[in-house]
Computed example of a mutant assay.
Amino acid sequence: MGRFDGTVAIVTGAGRGIGREHALLLAAEGASVVVNDLGGANDGTGTDAGPAQDVVDEIVAAGGRAVANTDNVAQWAGAGRLVDQAVAEFGRLDILINNAGILRDAFIAGITEDQWDAVIAVHLKGHAACLHHAAAYWKARSKAGEDVSAAVVNTASASGTFMPNAGQANYGAAKAGIAALTQVAAEELERYGVRVNAIAPIARTRLTLATPGMSALFAEEVPEGEFDAFSPANIAPVVAYLADPNSKLTGKVFAVQGGAISELIGWHTADAIESDGPWTIDDVAARLG
């Protein structure tokens, strides 16, 4: 008996890296999985049905159930087709793992509109589009009197939360938006039986190996038999727990790397100054320093 027997999951960006590990673990625990991956390059250009199908073949060879999907989640209609396929193929949807992402790093002074738009589209809009269509499906089931127990796990990043990275204004802004989206969605969807959480993973992937200043760290070889702290396989068990119907967590964001799991707390009030009357510029200057 698997932890997810009888459930259906979508994993976006599941053809490689972290997403692949999510799909493999959920399938090993009994979930039927829709493996979504456009199959593009790191910057989102191009398409290739191979990566998604390879993961499906691996799942099926191990005795699991899976189908491939190559829709572009950055397109509202593509995200809708993805959700529709899950329901058509397997009869339901219980879990949405938003993981798809690309990189087009550039410094703010030199970034182009296309570099900005492409990253925001795949990460932030891609999360929102899939979340929208899945939420509409779960809301309709709930309104019809069904007892819904569903889960969403979004993918934020250290770059958009606790470790801003120069050259990634587009990526960091998108990931910070995903963290905020997670908390808003958790508030909205709880009434329909849906929990929404996010992770900020640090692991060896195509994207991190291509990140300036970080590639050497992730590329270091790990001696055989030693714990690989940057293996993407370390991330999947956290996601599986957050997707488990027995978990009650919602509205949380967790940093995950190697053997460490840390809850991230968003913007909060630190030092404050107050005035009994209108501020003047000099008052603010004197008191803020």
Rank of each mutant, 00 (worst) to 15 (best):
A121Q: 07
L217Q: 08
A150V: 06
F227H: 13
F107V: 11
M214E: 13
E187K: 15
T208C: 05
G145I: 08
E221Y: 03
V148Q: 12
N170D: 14
G145C: 08
T155I: 04
A156L: 05
S142D: 03
D114V: 09
H133T: 07
A144N: 10
H123P: 01
Y171W: 08
V238C: 10
P164T: 01
A176H: 01
I202K: 00
I108M: 12
W116F: 02
A128L: 13
S231A: 14
S215G: 10
H133L: 08
A136Q: 14
L189V: 02
E146N: 12
A186M: 13
N154C: 09
A166T: 12
C130F: 02
H133S: 09
M163A: 15
N154G: 10
E146V: 02
P232S: 09
K143F: 12
T211E: 05
S231H: 12
A200Y: 03
G126K: 04
L217P: 05
A140N: 13
G193C: 00
S159Y: 01
N165H: 12
A136V: 15
Q168N: 11
A180Y: 01
E188W: 00
V152K: 02
S149G: 10
L207F: 05
R141E: 12
A200E: 02
A219T: 07
Q115H: 08
G177M: 06
T208F: 01
A140Q: 14
A219S: 13
A176F: 04
L131H: 02
E190R: 14
T182S: 04
P201G: 08
I202M: 13
E221N: 11
E188S: 13
V119W: 06
T205R: 06
Q168A: 13
A180V: 09
N234C: 11
G126N: 04
L131T: 14
Y192V: 09
N170S: 14
T205G: 03
E220G: 08
F107R: 12
R141F: 06
T161M: 04
I202V: 15
C130A: 13
P201D: 02
T205F: 03
M163T: 12
D114H: 11
S157W: 02
D147P: 08
G126Q: 03
E187M: 13
A121R: 13
A219L: 02
A150E: 01
A174R: 01
